[in-house]
């Protein structure tokens, strides 16, 4: 997992509540053997017409937001099915941070597992950030996880709360596997002892 420290980038405004995982990635794209490559299906129904052409009004189709790395939305982001394909699709598109008043639980967990930072901020603040985001490429936001602040284009710093353990994992890029790898010296030691006692287990 890629560590998340500080991110400065374009934020795409998605002024809607209850953006569910079916909207984030429709079910027909789940028959995949991969976690990557789903970015092209992100928000497919909102982003594309039935013939595959782009819907020009959708935010991620506008030139200013094609490389957005932050998403601003309203309440209950990521509700619905538990599919981990939702964070996979966001990540594959290049979104590494979603800011919203609150998130559905499973999506919230899945985001951390995949190196995406979900930032919870009160509705009024999300509305302000939504206005900032509407300025497109002229208004980049900074999300500083180290200091746990969002920095608006005007320099105003907005602190956010985050679970200390999860913050630690994201800062260090530690998923479950990453955490296990912190025990690497114990694993190495185990292998050295076992290799001496039972060499036939090592090919």
């Amino acid at each position: 997992m890629k560590p998340f420290t500080t991110l400065t980038g374009v934020a795409a405004p998605l002024p809607a509540a209850n953006v569910d995982t079916d909207k984030i990635i429709p079910a027909r794209f789940l028959k995949t053997i991969a976690r990557t490559g789903l970015g092209k299906h992100l928000f497919a129904n909102m982003r594309f017409n039935a013939d595959g052409s782009e819907k020009p009004d959708f935010v991620l189709n506008q030139p200013a937001y094609r490389n957005a790395e932050i998403l601003i939305a309203f309440e209950n982001f990521g509700c619905g099915s538990s599919r981990e394909h939702a964070p996979w699709a966001l990540l594959d598109f290049g979104i590494r941070c979603v800011i919203a008043p609150d998130f559905a639980d499973i999506f919230h967990n899945n985001s951390f597992k995949n190196g995406i930072l979900p930032v919870k901020l009160p509705r009024e603040i999300c509305e302000k950030l939504m206005e900032d985001a509407k300025l497109g490429g002229n208004a980049r936001l900074t999300v500083d996880l180290e200091r746990s602040v969002v920095i608006r284009p005007n320099g105003e710093e907005i602190p956010f709360a985050i679970d200390a353990f999860r913050r630690h994992c994201l800062l260090n890029g530690l998923d479950d596997i990453g955490q296990t790898l912190q025990h690497k010296s114990a694993i190495d030691g185990f292998e050295a002892r076992q290799r001496a006692a039972q060499p036939w287990l090592y090919g």
């Binding site: 596997i177 296990t180 790898l181 694993i187």
Partner: peptide, 8 residues
């Protein structure tokens, strides 16, 4: 994936 990466 966990086993492939860590053998644990």
């Amino acid at each position: 994936e966990h086993v492939l990466a860590t053998q644990t």
